[in-house]
């Protein structure tokens, strides 16, 4: 594998967006790009990542390769990232290490890190981001992040309801409750403020606040978040990157005993 990002901070943002959710991950590299999937330690949140060749300045992968890493180690190396540096990832045919090369052309500086790979046994699950859902919502990632931060302070359970009035986010804590209603809107001057809802059924689902606080860490990857909900199946919270690919978080709703 030889894959070069023209801006090393892109890879840093991608890794930082889920390093607090999962501790280790297998990157599956092939000619169609880098894909990865991991479940958090409590087995509740599934992270699914896609970095297609369009995200790279140059991308070459001669044969499918699995690159297993500890995210805490990788994240330490990526502290060197800067927007003025490129980052090239190299993996040999019989991989036992990942090489990261940062290059700053203006500063005539290069930095090289090598990281030992780890053997991770994990089943790949069939996830389909085109999955059928009762409700799809596209909205501002900044708005979603703020609502999650504000409301989850009040309760460890966060409810999403979608009906004819729009989308309602609510919490009902022991000492306080809160509710935010958003209606669809189109802002031609600032499309990142658009909110669209398509629904075949109304939904009313509750999620653990803790996982939503992890999910919003990926909001640096995109202006928009795409939400997909169906009764009794995992919801998908997805941030799509400008140059293609993105990161999706599958989270199963809580249910009453």
């Amino acid at each position: 594998l030889e894959a070069k990002f023209d801006d090393s901070t892109i890879f840093k943002k991608i890794i930082d967006s889920f390093k607090d959710s999962v501790s280790q991950i297998n990157f599956m590299c092939s000619e169609s790009g880098i894909e990865a999937q991991a479940i958090d330690d409590s087995r509740v949140l599934l992270v699914s990542l896609s970095i297609p060749p369009s995200c790279f300045e140059t991308y070459r992968c001669d044969r499918p390769t699995t690159v297993g890493v500890y995210l805490s180690s990788l994240s330490k190396l990526l502290k060197s990232a800067s927007s003025s540096a490129t980052l090239t990832l190299y993996v040999e045919d019989q991989p036992d290490e990942l090489l990261l090369l940062f290059e700053e052309s203006k500063a005539s500086k290069s930095m090289e890190y090598k990281m030992k790979l780890v053997d991770i046994t994990a089943d790949m699950l069939e996830v389909d981001s085109d999955m059928k859902s009762d409700v799809s919502v596209e909205m501002s990632g900044v708005e979603f992040t703020k609502i999650v931060r504000d409301l989850t302070q009040l309760s460890d359970s966060f409810t999403v309801s979608v009906g004819k009035d729009g989308i309602v986010f609510s919490v009902d804590g022991e000492t306080a409750s809160g509710k935010v209603l958003l209606q669809p809107k189109e802002d031609l001057a600032n499309p990142e403020n658009n909110l669209s809802i398509s629904m075949t059924k109304t939904i009313d689902l509750s999620f653990a606040s803790k996982y939503l606080l992890d999910i919003i860490k990926a909001s640096t990857l995109s202006n928009m978040i795409s939400l997909k909900f169906s009764e009794e199946t995992p919801a998908l919270f997805e941030f799509k990157m400008e140059k293609g690919g993105g990161i999706g978080f599958y989270l199963a709703p809580k249910y009453d005993e």
């Binding site: 479940i39 509740v44 089943d123 699950l125 509750s206 653990a208 199963a252 809580k254 009453d256």
Partner: peptide, 14 residues
């Protein structure tokens, strides 16, 4: 009280 189901049973293995 609410229960939090784990995620894997919702997906098939590849």
């Amino acid at each position: 009280a609410q229960n939090q189901p784990v995620i894997s049973p919702f997906f098939k293995k590849k």
